[in-house]
């Protein structure tokens, strides 16, 4: 039976309880009490650097350069809010308990989301298998996926290089927890 729907991403029930175990829960537990304000300038610098170094990222987003995204990495103690507007880019950390206004929410374990960002995993397959979940504006999420997938090289590597004091933990997480890639098996 036809039914009118009108939802936004922030109305989605709380994320993925994911308990995926992809990243040791201890990291999340240990970092959860830490304040977020020291992270914000690092994230700000990262998004500005990506905007400067990867202008091609924005071409595929079309009107969704003005959309806002919540990126919910299951093992992290906070979520990220992204606005990929080349003229006013934004990336900030927020507690999960915050009611964030966003057009789309993308949730999943660390390994899946970072591999999708890097074009190293097929997001459709991860969606079929329920490893990742999207809600809100599906078109915005799909455009972001396509924009990232069309990038040459590794944007995750770029981000790690830009992460300053977060370099060591991010590098640790990436090297220890990332799934083997197709090419790695050879």
């Amino acid at each position: 039976m036809p039914r009118q729907t009108s939802r936004t991403a922030h109305e989605t029930p709380e994320p993925f309880g994911l308990a995926s175990g992809k990243l040791p829960k201890m990291i999340g537990i240990l970092t959860a009490p830490l304040p977020l304000f020291p992270v914000q300038p690092i994230l700000r610098r990262m998004v500005l650097e990506v905007t400067r170094k990867r202008p091609e990222l924005f071409e595929r987003l079309g009107p969704h350069i003005h959309s806002t995204y919540v990126i919910d990495v299951a093992e992290m103690p906070f979520v990220l809010r992204l606005r990929p507007d080349p003229d006013a880019p934004g990336l900030s950390a927020h507690r999960r308990s915050e009611q964030l206004n966003a057009d789309a929410r993308i949730s999943g374990p660390f390994s899946a989301l970072f591999d999708v960002m890097d074009g190293a995993a097929d997001s459709d397959a991860l969606f079929f298998s329920r490893d990742i979940f999207i809600s809100g504006n599906t078109e915005a999420a799909v455009c972001l996926r396509s924009a990232l997938d069309d990038l040459d090289g590794s944007i995750v590597e770029d981000l790690i290089q830009m992460s300053g004091p977060l370099y060591a933990p991010l590098r640790f997480a990436l090297t220890r927890l990332r799934k083997p890639r197709v090419g790695d098996r050879a």
């Binding site: 939802r7 029930p13 979940f133 999207i134 809600s135 599906t138 078109e139 999420a141 799909v142 455009c143």
Partner: peptide, 16 residues
């Protein structure tokens, strides 16, 4: 099925 017309909604029972 244009993405602009698609929505996924997580329900309280865990279904989508």
């Amino acid at each position: 099925s244009p993405a602009s017309a698609v929505q996924y909604v997580r329900r309280p029972d865990g279904s989508t």
